[in-house]
């Protein structure tokens, strides 16, 4: 099962002919992901290792059935590409692109909602259901199939934590990097219900960092709705204070945004917070039956 993607998922790559798109398409295919087509406007008719490239998402859909699209489109064109895919009816978008303008993304996010699909990212490492499919840029060999779901705001830190789990013999059902931008398609609380319903997932790890209040919201959600155990890690306990300017962020979220404040809320809601990446694996081990 896993969530969002499995070995059956048919994948489109938008921006497939760019250097990032080409490089990661090859790695995804090598991992076993079913990449069925690519899109780059103006490059229709080409192929990449036998994968047909189309001018538009609609053109691709005339020839293929597609369940998800991963985007390696440069930032100025990424909102357009996301909307094109959503308009064509693709239900899952994974946007790797970094550096999309905030005000572009604000508008894009709300337009995408009108189509009803799901967006992961932007500015994220993507997602992987180990042993089944990878829609992302993470090193596949770090991950093992198993019962632990991971939702993370960070990229490399996720690899670190997953590798500790894998070495402890604990595999993962699906690992989702949700991205670090202020506006992201899916937050902790929006993905937790999917893990709650996934029969393969027995436990969920939340990997957070300083800033915003998404971890606090997740803590409340878990306490009220989740029956499966949840373990957390927060990066940034030693981050210097006073880097912020203005009061609005704190007023809106009602939180300081510090690692301390996040850990306090999580622990108050019964979610253990590991103090080191290695400790995540220990906490998980204790809680898995």
């Amino acid at each position: 099962m896993a969530i969002l993607v499995d070995s059956e998922t048919r994948v489109l790559v938008q921006g497939i002919t760019g250097s990032e798109g080409t490089f990661h398409t090859r790695h995804m295919v090598a991992y076993g992901t079913r990449v069925v087509a690519g899109v780059t406007p103006g490059k229709g008719g080409q192929t990449l290792d036998g994968i047909p490239v189309y001018d538009s998402v609609r053109d691709a859909l005339r020839e293929h059935e597609i369940d998800a699209s991963i985007l390696f489109v440069p930032a100025p064109f990424a909102p357009d590409a996301m909307l094109e895919a959503a308009d064509a009816g693709i239900p899952l978008l994974v946007c790797i692109t970094e550096g999309i303008a905030l005000h572009d993304m604000l508008k894009c996010y709300h337009l995408l909602r009108g189509y009803g699909g799901r967006l992961i990212g932007p500015n994220c490492p993507g997602l992987i259901s180990p042993g089944k499919a990878k829609l992302g840029i993470m090193p596949g060999e770090v991950f093992r199939p198993g019962p632990v779901g991971i939702i993370s705001r960070s990229g490399t830190l996720t690899y670190e934590i997953a590798s500790h789990l894998s070495r402890a013999g604990i595999g993962q059902s699906t690992v989702v990097g949700i991205g670090g931008d202020p506006i992201i398609g899916s937050t902790f609380t929006e993905l937790l219900p999917l893990f709650a319903e996934d029969p393969e997932t027995e436990l969920v790890v939340l990997v957070g960092e300083i800033g915003g209040a998404a971890e606090e919201a997740a803590a409340d959600y878990v306490a009220e709705h989740m029956k499966k155990p949840v373990v957390a890690y927060i990066a940034g306990f030693s981050a210097p204070p006073g880097k912020r300017m203005g009061h609005a962020g704190a007023i809106i979220s009602g939180s300081e945004g510090t690692a301390e404040a996040k850990a306090r809320r999580l622990e108050a809601r019964g979610i253990p917070v590991a103090r080191t990446p290695a400790q995540v694996a220990e906490l998980v081990k204790e809680r898995l039956s």
Binding site: S152, V207, E209, A235, G236
Partner: peptide, 16 residues
């Protein structure tokens, strides 16, 4: 380090 999260986690470990 590479990646803000991993660098912050490294800072935390040094302090610990």
């Amino acid at each position: 380090g590479n990646g803000a999260g991993l660098v912050m986690a490294t800072l935390d470990l040094v302090v610990q």
